[in-house]
Design a protein around this nucleic acid. Structure first.
Length: 493
RNA sequence: CGGAGUUUAGCGCAGUUGGUAGCGCGCUACGUUCGGGACGUAGAGGUCGGGCGUUCGAGUCGCCUAACUCCGACCA
């Protein structure tokens, strides 16, 4: 059995530190010279690219197309939707000038006061406003609808306190912005994309999620309804993994976007927006990893199999490499990505530890002993179990193993969540239970005041009003007033 | 933005009453090794976060400033 890495803080010692150590030591990302902004390193970016590719395919399959809108938004645009500007104003980066000049004293450059912009530009915190000002020109008739656009972009939100992947001042995401002729169509779109996110999270990230609706307090600034998927991390805290908003006609009204319907009547357009960000990386890391490092689901691992040769001479290495080439070819034919690490500056033991840290799902080790017996040692990252198997049929064996790992880590995350999800019926019990973490299913009277009070007293928020599950009415645990159904409470990231 | 801590070689750290900077890992070369983070020998690598001050003399003392980490506040 592998021993734990010396340099990695354990989850039990300090979960938060464990996460930070892991992100840096597994070469996923690091802090940059710019406050709150991270550098995503090649290994981390490779995971993000896999997420992007899969999500992009899913968006295309559901009829969406990609486009690109400007990074800058005129200040006046942001203020056209009242709730929207209120939600974002406090965290906007603002461009005020367009030129620098040499400092009169010769030391570097200064902002040229002559080059002040007529109207300041906001670095987009999200693109609803610039997109809806554009859609105005694209839409005249019901025949122009629906518009189903997505963009992959970076956005900036000037956060006070940042953490790699979970909350950074600049982050990468996709934002879908759709325009529809009817309310029901827009609502269906918002729900459809929520399902896409949930499917992606569960099937690819192996992270089980609860689909639900946000309470008014947690709703997106400018939305009529916010749908979300909520995931649970190993420390018992919740993480919002994706949101899909039904925007009603709010942005159409703010930007005066009307269309002529079949009856030749002018109507405002109905809208949705939906997004997931590099925060998903944080969810992925925290959901599965252990004290030895990352545990990646095979479907998102930059490479699924790593092969480490164990040799004493060049001749031995050559013999091993020849055998490895056969295995690699077979694996690639099955669509399995492989890395053969025959670098001679690291010993096998070092490589074992390194690839465990990086979460490679399956590791093969091959030495003289294996050549002699026509076998390979296989280790699976999720359970750290080793077995020695014959060359024959190894590719198919690994294919099954990868499927099994994908299923197993999902099940592990699912079982963990189930073990810390429970119904709580009194506020006293709630205050006690919330300290233990996990999801608490409770009755709530539906008012923002009660939610606010619970938040102040316990730091817990309503993660969502679940779409599925128990719909039995009851009485609010705080006020005793009527409650339509249980909602999900947790402390969150 | 408030409170606390940190900042010295690529990374992790030590540095005494103020006297001119060191250890481990890593890196380079060579050799021995190679089935769970090997070892030996020889090397390279520093305006001590930045600025100002006190002093004959500052990594060390004082003030300012920046970044990072943690705890709050804020946050879709």
């Amino acid at each position: 059995m592998a021993k734990e890495l010396k340099e990695l803080t354990t989850r039990e010692e300090n979960y938060s530190q464990w996460y930070n150590d892991l992100v840096v030591k597994a070469d996923l990302a690091e802090n940059s010279a710019v406050r709150g902004c991270m550098v995503i390193k090649p290994y981390g970016y490779a995971i993000w690219e896999k997420m992007q590719r899969q999500l992009d395919d899913m968006f295309k399959e559901t009829g969406h197309v990609n486009a690109y809108f400007p990074l800058f938004i005129p200040k006046s645009f942001l203020s056209k939707e009242a709730d929207h500007v209120e939600g974002f104003a406090k965290e906007c980066a603002v461009v005020t000038h367009y030129r620098l000049k040499t400092n009169p004293d010769g030391t570097g450059v200064v902002v040229d006061p002559e080059a002040k912009l007529e109207e300041e530009l906001i670095v987009r915190p999200t693109s609803e406003t610039i997109i809806w000002s554009t859609y105005k020109n694209w839409i005249q008739s019901y025949r122009d609808l629906p518009i189903l656009c997505n963009q992959w972009a970076n956005v900036v939100r000037w956060e006070m306190r940042t953490r790699l992947f979970l909350r950074t001042a600049e982050f990468l995401w996709q934002e879908g912005h759709t325009a529809h002729a009817t309310e029901s169509e827009a609502l269906a779109e918002a729900r459809k994309m929520l399902d896409v996110y949930a499917q992606f999270s569960e099937e690819y990230m192996a992270v089980p999620v609860i689909k639900g609706v946000k309470s008014a307090n947690e709703r997106f600034a400018g939305a009529v309804e916010t749908f979300c998927i909520e995931a649970l991390m190993q420390d018992g805290k919740a993480l919002q993994a994706g949101t899909s908003h039904f925007l009603g006609q709010n942005f159409a009204k703010a930007f005066d976007v009307k269309f002529v319907n079949k009856e030749n009547q002018l109507e405002y357009v109905w809208a949705t927006s939906w997004g997931v960000s590099t925060r998903l990386m944080g969810a992925l890391i925290m959901a599965h990893s252990d004290n030895n490092g990352l545990v990646l689901p095979p479907k998102l691992a930059p490479f699924q199999v790593v092969i480490v040769p164990i040799y004493k001479s060049e001749e031995q290495l050559a013999a091993i490499s020849e055998k490895v080439a056969q295995i690699t070819t077979e694996l690639k034919q099955l669509g399995i990505s492989v890395k053969y690490d025959d670098s001679d500056n690291r010993k096998p033991g070092w490589k074992f530890a390194e690839y465990e840290l990086k979460g490679v799902p399956v590791r093969l080790a091959m030495g003289a002993r294996d050549l002699e017996h026509a076998t390979v040692e296989i280790m699976r990252r999720d359970t750290l179990e080793k077995e020695t198997v014959s060359f024959d049929g190894i590719a198919v064996h690994i294919q099954h193993l990868l499927d099994d790992i994908q299923t197993n880590i999902y099940k592990k995350a699912f079982d963990y969540r189930a073990s810390v999800t429970r119904e709580v019926n009194s506020y006293d019990e709630f205050k006690e239970e919330i300290e233990k973490g996990g999801f608490l299913l409770c009755h709530w009277d539906g008012t923002p005041e009660t939610e606010e009070r619970i938040k102040e007293e316990t730091k817990a928020t309503i993660r969502c009003i679940p779409l599925n599950g128990d719909k039995t009415p009851g009485k609010c645990m705080v006020t005793g007033k009527l409650s339509a159904q249980r909602v999900v409470f947790a402390r969150s990231y």
